[in-house]
Design a protein around this nucleic acid. Sequence first.
DNA 1: GTTAGCACTCACCCACACAGAGTGCTAACA
DNA 2: TGTTAGCACTCTGTGTGGGTGAGTGCTAAC
Lengths: 342, 342
Amino acid sequence: MLELSERKQHILAVIVERYIATGEPVGSKVICTQMGNAVSSATIRNDMADLVELGLLAQPHTSAGRIPSQAGYRYYVDNLMADYELDADEQERIKIWLGSFSSEPDKLLEKAGSILAELTNCVAVSSSPADSDAIIRRIELVPLSNHTAMIVLLASSGILKSAVVRSDAEINMDIAEVFYNICQTYFVSRSVSDISIPFIQTLVASLGDKVFVMSPFLCAIADLCEAVKTTDLHLKGQNNILNHSELSEEAFGLMDFIHRGTPLENMLDSHKAPLNVAIGSENVYRELKNSTTIFSKYSVGNKDSGSIGIIGPTRLDYAHLIPTIKYLAGVIGNMLTETLDE
Amino acid sequence: MLELSERKQHILAVIVERYIATGEPVGSKVICTQMGNAVSSATIRNDMADLVELGLLAQPHTSAGRIPSQAGYRYYVDNLMADYELDADEQERIKIWLGSFSSEPDKLLEKAGSILAELTNCVAVSSSPADSDAIIRRIELVPLSNHTAMIVLLASSGILKSAVVRSDAEINMDIAEVFYNICQTYFVSRSVSDISIPFIQTLVASLGDKVFVMSPFLCAIADLCEAVKTTDLHLKGQNNILNHSELSEEAFGLMDFIHRGTPLENMLDSHKAPLNVAIGSENVYRELKNSTTIFSKYSVGNKDSGSIGIIGPTRLDYAHLIPTIKYLAGVIGNMLTETLDE
DNA sequence: GTTAGCACTCACCCACACAGAGTGCTAACA
DNA sequence: TGTTAGCACTCTGTGTGGGTGAGTGCTAAC
């Protein structure tokens, strides 16, 4: 790690924080005042020149002040940033906002995304748990009309998926009973990755005369298992991209990137640590080379499941946003774990 | 309605279609060629001057060609536009895309929005049916674990709402039975607007010792009824706003507008006709004064329910988009009606 | 009513000058 | 050796003026 004199660290911190606040390059004179005129602006200029040399600061042009380079932000996040905890008020507010309506996992994640977008003024992304090894906990048939029913599947990943199925035959108690038995025998307690199309086909073949009645339901179950294995991304606050003038050049590319879906999923999947902060070109995808991504995983029942986080400019209030995202991920994890309580 | 000579109509049509295709102002010479040199460019210039006089064309500046004014688009849509039907291929493609996974109403609408965004390169908006007079068709309790259950509510508007509820007491057959009886007696066949907070309070008071077990469920039902009364908006293809250079000036305002939600809901609610095309300042909200909105209502069980449509620039391929949106609305209506079949 | 011919009008592009902010460097100082 | 005052320098942003070209509007003839 880079060794910096106390004063240079202080100067770097002032520049980062001031630039984060104003978006304007910071000149030596301003820093001088900010530091209570402890040293002259010329001294600060000398230090700033050194910091540029070290790659921690950048100069948009000769006659402008300095702005943090991506490495400068990184140094700030790793070494200078004040530890900040959400105060009880903020914590309470988030909890109430999130829990005002006890909802399904997918809706909870969507709502968490909305909250995050609101709090951060960035694009918020939340991913629902995708777990190929998830076990089917329960499957229920909910009759809706004579010919339609809803199938609900609860997986050990805490995720709940449902589909509406239409059957040509009337859905009565008999059918429900048969469905229940099939589920208990062939589906419940198995891994979702066992439920392949061939599996369904063999199963269907063994059903005899019930095959026509049952097959739409069984196909729906296969679809639901597929859905359990698939990551769902929820995007919120896309309007915030245009809020950040430094992103206006690449707003189009960014928008396109987040709408493409798959690369974003891959990125979230590749995260190993519970918290990931990627500044500028630390991001794998070059579409994000001028953006910062902050993502936190949440865990359902002690197992890392999905992520929630933001995509924004590199000029971000890291000191406040990182703890906020961490906290939100914690709350979501707890709420989703509850559904699995036996 | 404005009386125009055959030739002027033709010139207007050429200008509108060419401008839609290229985005460049159209000059007299180009039109001349397009019309097979039937008349000279000077003649066309004279006609164009008349069309400007009538307010159907506009001139970005003296030495540029002409572009359609908003009134010009309107005249085109009302009188000149070719009637276009989706061919069987396109129809089939939409149906397959939409119906690949028999889904819940909300998800169906979301998917329809995605399809529309894809097909039109515009922001697609779909609203789920909100009906204050909807009748509760069914309420079902789906146990998920010892202490959590899902409540599913089907309303006559074709909409299905669900919530996950956590109860301190264990959820067993007894509780399911009590719940079922309460639902049959107090909820099913009533209008969702009857299920007010006071109603729930009186009901709770009459439950005696079951009050603690039941109240979270009953509160959830009240929330669900509220949800049935509320319009849900699904936005898709927001990246498309940046695709249209003519909207880049107001991209920020537009983005903000569609994210505010309520005005958009009000707009959809105010539509009386099955198909609404508002060009530029025909839109009530001034944020849309340079945009076009095309919305079609879909009906569930012969009753107008929600809308689906797009927001884009005034420069749109009206001749193709309008039939596409109409068709999609028709398909959605049919699919949602099916769920209600008794 | 239609056409050819021509002057005219802007938007666009480029080059240039000017002001202002903030620096880099030098020489003096503690 | 580290710090400071002073000053020339550099580069952006803005505004001004001339040149080019596309497309028009107008006039006079057909």
